[in-house]
Write a protein that binds this DNA or RNA. Structure first.
Lengths: 230, 230
DNA sequence: CCTATACTTCGATGGGCAACGAACTGTTTG
DNA sequence: CAAACAGTTCGTTGCCCATCGAAGTATAGG
């Protein structure tokens, strides 16, 4: 028996769900709330849609804390959506009003209490490159070298070790789809940057704004390649 | 400004319409009544669906006397439907118990205008093994050797080269999950086999039936291993 | 003309389902 | 602990649209 394409197609054929899928076409993993916002629907409705999409194996989900990160299940799904995109554009259908994501939000923002966005990912890569942190299968740890480095910066590493919260934790970045640094050390780094006025929080937003001086100090402090920092 | 895939997808995502589209995947032009019968709906309902499909440029229609013949608008539509077929089968939608007609459909069938199923895959593998075609990362091309071979068979390769449509294209086979040959060459091979009466189309179905003589001629012509051909 | 056939239009019906408010579980933070 | 937040479940509402009966238009053949 031939597979029934109407099942999958009708899943894609709902406006809210197609907007969710389009948002995920970037390959990035997004949370349920972000997708609800993207599709301009309530969280309940999004939850319903997302469970359908996961149930039909169009999406996969990864739970992280109280967040759920959704992604396209595989390359084949992305390719099929791409075909539909091409077809839709050649057949000349209407255009969608796509809310352009805030470029500042993409650049650097706060993720609970630590730095995310391009900046956060650059920091993570720099620390990894200098072997301040090491990546095992899933977990990351602060290396001896890293421990010395941060002690010199004034971090009470021993105090952090006593805490229940892990010092280093990798957190999936939704705009970059790469890891950035969470955990108590990630929190410290952001707080430190804010305290030194390298950066400031923008009101009513998750955006973090670095000053010109802040960028140069921050990149020098953690040996971040200037190129990876816009 | 992205095109909105939900419009097209919801058109395909209706059970009756998807059955109509599947029936047209045979490449044949069918009348409204035939399509209504195929989808098991009334003539009025079919008329409604067909006007929508034509209105969105998924189908084209040709009026002939008091009949209207419907066809898929172009290859792109056929290819997109094939992608959806593949996706539906790999996502493991419910497979229904196989009826008697199913083995034939799996064995050889028409995929818009070229050969698919076990036969189509065997042909593809044979051509690849003899280096008539070569597979690059994604695309496939007709080799010099293949060009000579098909010119001897009477294919106007130079003419095909002028066409907008690619000569060789790999098309993922939903039942075999391997590639078979599409493109203008794939079309020629099927037409040639039908013209030489090695095979015939079954009425009201996508099944291609090879005669006993047809199998031996076909396998000899393209050096297909008899074992790969049930 | 008349009849048969092919297809369309109109109107009414009904079912499926997207949407959301309210209330719930589970996680993080202070 | 309480409060804030992420996500879910449930029940209700409303509407879109597939469906078909009935009637209308168009073509073909006597």
């Amino acid at each position: 028996m031939e597979p029934d394409i109407s099942v999958i197609s009708s899943l894609i054929g709902d406006r809210a769900r197609s907007r969710i899928l389009m948002a995920l076409m970037s390959g990035k993993a997004l949370t349920a709330t972000e997708l609800a916002c993207e599709a301009e629907i309530s969280a309940q409705t999004a939850s319903n849609h997302l469970s359908k999409l996961v149930g039909s194996n169009l999406l996969v989900v990864r739970k992280q804390g109280r967040h759920k990160y959704f992604q396209l299940a595989n390359h084949q799904v992305a390719e099929t959506l791409e075909m539909l995109l091409n077809l839709s554009s050649t057949l000349g259908s209407q255009k969608i009003t796509t809310g352009p994501a805030d470029p500042d939000l993409k650049k650097s923002r706060i993720c609970y209490d630590h730095l995310a966005g391009v900046t956060g990912v650059a920091l993570y890569d720099a620390l990894l490159g200098q072997e301040m942190i090491s990546e095992n299968s899933q977990n990351i740890t602060l290396t001896e070298r890293g421990e010395l480095f941060f002690q010199k910066k004034g971090v009470a590493v021993d105090e952090l070790k006593k805490g229940k919260r892990p010092i280093c934790k990798s957190c999936l970045d939704w705009s970059e789809r790469k890891s950035h640094l969470a955990g108590s050390l990630g929190q410290w780094i952001l707080e430190d940057a804010l305290a030194k006025q390298w950066a400031s929080r923008r009101l009513d937003s998750r955006v973090i704004t670095f000053s010109k001086r802040g960028v140069s100090q921050f990149t020098r402090c953690y040996q971040i390649e200037p190129g990876s920092f816009l």
